[in-house]
Design a protein around this nucleic acid. Structure first.
Lengths: 116, 116
DNA sequence: ATTAATACATCGAATTTCAATGTATTGCAT
DNA sequence: ATGCAATACATTGAAATTCGATGTATTAAT
């Protein structure tokens, strides 16, 4: 394992956090923020991003609105009421995950475990 | 997203940490330790575990030895010299990952980013 | 005597993510 | 003025990862 594959499994949750933080944002901006927050490590590709956004919209977690920006258009996404619930649930799970990961990193031989 | 899917993408790295910490361990024990460290959250299924261990062995990261235990047998795995390098690299990447994840959780509106 | 736990394994399906490709506009540098 | 990089959307097929089911066998507990 050479690359930073660790984000796999967290991307959806991270997007929800980014969208909540932004209030309203669009696809390309999300890729840029992901890059910024991760110091260049998390490159969310289009093939990952757009289908995911579409899925979340189909699930009623996101709603979108296409707005013109100069001569091109941006598709802005925000959390629905339902999506806000999902986001805060997701945030709690993320925090749990982080705490548990710490357990693995502090490599203390596990006491409770009986070695035969 | 209802479940704890966050571990996807980190399983291989966590296994390397667990094996390093144990010195020598076997498949079933790894599933138990993963459960214990994650407070019951991370259930590594057999369909995930065994092919992964086999892959890591094929890559020269792990080496195995089947030892009888009573009337049945356990297949013990340990890191090779090469595997030890992988494990410490992996640990560094994991730490990086955790630090970056903190950035996402502390939801501070990102300053460096220009909003139009 | 039956069930749960221990211990290995494989296989096909589902899910997730990537890489490539496509279209179009805008900004910058030469 | 021309071409390239960046912005902005999207789809598609392939690759990789993980799950769930299934299989075999031993041991421990009820």
């Amino acid at each position: 394992m050479l690359k930073n594959d660790f984000y796999k499994g967290s991307i959806e949750a991270l997007l929800l956090q980014l969208i909540e933080q932004a209030g309203e944002t669009y696809g390309y901006e999300l890729t840029q923020k992901a890059l910024a927050y991760s110091e260049g490590k998390l490159k969310i590709t289009e093939g990952t991003l757009y289908p995911l956004l579409h899925k979340l919209e189909a699930q009623g977690i996101l709603e979108s609105e296409v707005k013109p920006y100069g001569n091109r258009s941006r598709k802005y996404y925000r959390l629905t009421k339902e999506g806000k619930k999902e986001q805060s649930k997701s945030l709690e799970q993320l925090k749990d995950f982080m705490i548990q990961m710490q357990q693995f990193l502090t490599l203390k031989p596990f006491k409770n475990f009986i070695n035969h």
